[in-house]
Each structure stands twice: as structure tokens, then as C-alpha cells.
């Protein structure tokens, strides 16, 4: 399988080339175009495992209940994946490890990757992300997306990421919700409020922009919902 991400970071689209009889699992709605001889099966779970419970859990994380499984025929084929919002996409390879992905940022993965719900504790309520996270476990390639450009930060010790800017992180990292400045007063006056402080050793991928900040700039001129 070969993955090529094009038109980064504004209008990213992923071109996935499947070798004969290779498979790809993707979130429902992510496919925008593909070769004519690729087969699709739609399930609520990963093939040959899991069940409806996992689908419900995935829905809680802000993902679709359904997954599409693309099967190449006896010939090589290609699939194009893209998302609704403008933004970036990233390819990453897992080697028998776990990646925690922000709810809504999962796009696709190789069949050997387990897709499950990640629970990061009640602190997630304050993280500016969805309360539930997607947990990708196993070995293989994955594709994730974001609102804004994606950039990695190698953490060795501690690093701060503002709420709403997390895309994914290695599970060798953990985060706590804390203040941005040295004092709580400073932190709130600064407009930064709560931030996520990562601890440990690993990579956190951030999105340059935050959809809620963009949303807030629109609210003053949007018309209110009429009663």
C-alpha cells in the first residue's frame, strides 16, 4: 500500500494505491473517488471482530458508526480520501503501538489496526476535544486529518498544547489540564485559560488552527435561531 497526501495543508486529499487484493478501512464518507474494480463492504465494526458496541463507542467519539472496507481486485487500484472541512492530513505508521486520536480526526487505516474508543478520563471535558478519543492499536499505516496544518512536537519531559489544538499523541504520553501562566489569574486574563500539559516521552501532533476560535469570530454576525 502506498499513501500520498496532496494539496497540503489547505485542501489535503490522500491518494491510496492498493496492490492486488490489499485492503483499506476508512471512515464512512471519506472516499471521494476510486478505481472501478475496488469492492466495498460496509460494516459497523472491523472485519471479523468487534460488534455493534464498538460502533456505538466510535459514534460517541464523534466518528461515523460505519466503516467502509475497500478491497482491491486482482489488479492494482487507487482510492482518494478527503474530509468535509478544509485542512491538513497526515500519514503515519504504527509499529505494534497505540496512538490516541482526537474524536473526528480518524480517516483510514490498514486492516490490522484495531479501532477502539479511548477514554482519557474526565479531564477530557476541559480539553476542548470530544470527551471520547479514538484509540488505534496495532501495526500498519493510518491516515488522520485536522482543521489547519498539522505539525509534530517531540515531547521529552513537558510541553503545553492549548485546548482544541490536539490531533493525536502516542500513548507513552499523558496530559493534565492546567493553567497557561504561572498563576491562575494570569492564565485567565491572558485569554488562554486552560491548557493541556503533556508529560512523558513521545510525539504529539497539533493542528495549527482551532475550529471553535473560528466559530467564535462568526457568532457576532450570525443570525440567532428564531424561537
Amino acid at each position: 500500500m502506498n499513501i500520498e497526501i496532496m494539496h497540503r495543508p489547505g485542501n489535503a486529499a490522500a491518494k491510496v494505491t492498493l496492490e492486488p487484493s490489499e485492503q483499506l478501512t476508512a471512515e464512512a464518507g471519506a472516499m471521494i473517488a476510486m478505481s472501478g474494480d475496488i469492492g466495498i463492504t460496509t460494516t459497523t465494526h472491523k472485519k471479523e471482530s468487534g460488534g455493534i458496541l464498538k460502533a456505538v463507542k466510535r459514534m460517541l467519539a464523534g466518528e461515523s458508526m460505519f466503516l467502509n472496507h475497500f478491497n482491491a481486485s486482482s489488479q492494482r487500484g487507487e482510492i482518494w480520501l478527503a474530509t468535509t472541512l478544509p485542512g491538513d492530513m497526515m500519514e503515519h505508521t504504527l509499529d505494534n503501538e497505540t496512538l490516541i486520536v482526537q474524536g473526528g480526526s480518524y480517516v483510514a487505516s490498514e486492516p490490522d489496526i484495531e479501532i477502539d474508543l479511548g477514554w482519557q478520563g474526565f479531564k477530557s471535558v476541559f480539553s476542548g476535544e470530544s470527551i471520547f478519543w479514538v484509540r488505534l492499536v496495532g501495526t500498519g499505516k493510518i491516515i488522520i486529518n485536522s482543521f489547519g496544518a498539522i505539525y509534530p512536537i517531540e515531547v521529552d519531559g513537558e510541553y503545553i498544547v492549548d485546548t482544541g489544538h490536539i490531533v493525536a499523541f502516542n500513548d507513552t504520553l499523558d496530559f493534565t489540564i492546567t493553567k497557561a501562566g504561572s498563576s491562575w489569574i494570569n492564565s485567565f486574563l491572558s485569554g488562554e485559560g486552560l491548557v493541556c500539559k503533556f508529560q512523558g516521552r513521545g510525539t504529539v501532533w497539533c493542528q495549527s488552527h482551532k475550529s471553535s476560535s473560528f466559530g467564535q469570530t462568526l457568532t457576532s454576525t450570525l443570525k440567532p435561531r428564531s424561537a
Binding site: 486574563l189 491572558s190 488562554e192 497539533c206 482551532k210
Partner: peptide, 16 residues
């Protein structure tokens, strides 16, 4: 500008 920071080193000193 206020709320412009998206990520930073944990020992950065922030003053409003």
C-alpha cells in the same frame, strides 16, 4: 494577541 498561543514549552513564562 490574547489566545494566540497554540502550543509552547512548559516552562515558558506567560504574563497577561
Amino acid at each position: 494577541e490574547s489566545d494566540a498561543m497554540s502550543s509552547m514549552a512548559a516552562d515558558m513564562e506567560v504574563t497577561a
